[in-house]
C-alpha cells in the first residue's frame, strides 16, 4: 500500500514575494496583440525575465488584498522561508537515521550528488513540522481499515475489516499520520537493524543498510504481490535482489510493531523523491542537484515547437528565478483583459 506520505492541510503564508519584488511598470507593449506578447515572453524567458510587461489593470477592477502574486489564494503554499536545516521536527538522532536512509535510496557523493547532498532530510523535517497530518488534503474521518486473513472478524464501529490481499486497492487507510509514522517507524528500523546486525541503522555498512531496506521493500512488495497472483497476471521477471524469506519478513513486521515497515519504506522513498526533485524553496534539491541529475531545466516560461523536437539550452533555474506572468492587455485597446477578477464573484 502506498501513500502514507501524501496529502495535506493548508497553511497561511506568503510565497514568492522576494522573487517578484522587482515587478516593473513598463508600458512597452502599447500595441495589443498576441504576437508582441509572445515575442516579449520569449525575450523575457531568454534574458532572465527582465523584459516582462507589467500589469495595467483597468480602473474598475480592484484586486483584493489577499489576491495577488505574492500571496496566491490556493493552498497549500510553499514555505515562507526556505528551510535551512535547523531541525524543526526530528531529533538529532532521528535526523541522522533519516538522512542515512535517504542516502541509500538516492546515494551520492560530491561529484555525483544524492539525497544527502541535496539536503533531503531538511525537506522532510520541514514538511513534517509544517503539516500536523498530511501535506495534501486527506479524508481522516474514522473508521479506518483493519486487514485480516482467513475468516472475517465481526465488523465494529472502530474498524472496517478488509481482506489483507485487497487492502492495497484502497490506498491509504491506516489513520497513521506521517509524524507518527516517522516517530514510531525509526525505532522499528533500529530494532530490526540491531536484531539482524547488532547495531543501529546508521552504524551499518552501506551494504548492510541496503539489506535492511531490501527487507522493508520486500514487505511492501509482498502486500501487493499477492494481488498479482490473484488477478492471474504473472509478475514480469523475478530477478534482482533475492527476496528475504517469508519468516524474515514476518519478523521485520514484528520489529516495527504498529507501523507497517512496507508503508514506512514507501513513505520515506516518496519523501526522498520529493525532497530531491521539488523546488529548492521547500528545503531540498539544494543547488538544483536533483534537476541536474535528470537533465531538467526547472520551471521555464516557454518553449518553441522547434525546441520540442530538437531540445533547448536553458540555464536550469528554480521558481525564484522565474518572473511572474503579468497581463499585458490594456482596457482602451479592446475587451478588458479577461484574466482579472470581476465583480459578481465573491465569497458568499
Amino acid at each position: 500500500m502506498r501513500g502514507v506520505d501524501r496529502v495535506g492541510a493548508g497553511r497561511i503564508g506568503r510565497s514568492w514575494a522576494a522573487t517578484v519584488a522587482d515587478k516593473q511598470t513598463v508600458h512597452a507593449n502599447d500595441r495589443p496583440g498576441l504576437v508582441s506578447r509572445r515575442a516579449l515572453l520569449r525575450a523575457g524567458s531568454l534574458l532572465g525575465g527582465t523584459a516582462l510587461v507589467a500589469c495595467t489593470s483597468s480602473s474598475q477592477v480592484t484586486v483584493p488584498a489577499e489576491q495577488n502574486v505574492d500571496a496566491p489564494l490556493r493552498h497549500p503554499v510553499p514555505p515562507a522561508h526556505t528551510p535551512t536545516g535547523v531541525l524543526a521536527f526530528f531529533t538529532e538522532v532521528e535526523a541522522r537515521t533519516v538522512e542515512a536512509v535517504t542516502a541509500r535510496i538516492i546515494p551520492g557523493d560530491a561529484r555525483d550528488p544524492g539525497a544527502r547532498e541535496a539536503a533531503v532530510v531538511t525537506y522532510i523535517d520541514a514538511k513534517l513540522a509544517e503539516f500536523k497530518a498530511f501535506a495534501e488534503p486527506t479524508f481522516l474521518t474514522p473508521p479506518f481499515a483493519e486487514g485480516y486473513a482467513g475468516t472475517p472478524p465481526p465488523a465494529s464501529v472502530d474498524a472496517v475489516p478488509v481482506p489483507e490481499d485487497q487492502l492495497y486497492r484502497y490506498g491509504y487507510q491506516s489513520g497513521v499520520t506521517p509524524q507518527e509514522a516517522y516517530r514510531n517507524g525509526l525505532p522499528g528500523l533500529d530494532r530490526y537493524a540491531r536484531r539482524r546486525f547488532g547495531v543501529p541503522f546508521v552504524e551499518l555498512t552501506e551494504a548492510d543498510q541496503d539489506a535492511v531496506l531490501d527487507a522493508l521493500d520486500a514487505v511492501q512488495q509482498r502486500s501487493e504481490g499477492e494481488q498479482s497472483e490473484e488477478s492471474g497476471s504473472t509478475p514480469a521477471e523475478e530477478a534482482g535482489p533475492a527476496r528475504p524469506e517469508e519468516a524474515e519478513l514476518d519478523a521485520v513486521e514484528a520489529d516495527f510493531g504498529e507501523v507497517d515497515p512496507g508503508e514506512f519504506f514507501t513513505m520515506v522513498r516518496t519523501d526522498t523523491i520529493e525532497g530531491m526533485f521539488a523546488d529548492p524553496a521547500y528545503g531540498g534539491n539544494r543547488g538544483l542537484v536533483g534537476w541536474n541529475l535528470v537533465g531538467y531545466p526547472g520551471p521555464q516560461r516557454a518553449y518553441s515547437p522547434e525546441e520540442m523536437l530538437v531540445g533547448a539550452r536553458r540555464q536550469p533555474q528554480a521558481l525564484d528565478g522565474l518572473p511572474a506572468m503579468n497581463p499585458d492587455r490594456r482596457h482602451q485597446h479592446g475587451p478588458e483583459a479577461v484574466e482579472q477578477p470581476r465583480a459578481g464573484v465573491r465569497d458568499g
Partner: peptide, 14 residues
C-alpha cells in the same frame, strides 16, 4: 475559491 488567470496563475510552475 474565486480564481483568475491573473494574479492567481501568474506564478504557478510549482
Amino acid at each position: 475559491p474565486a480564481q483568475w488567470t491573473y494574479p492567481d496563475f501568474a506564478h504557478n510552475h510549482d
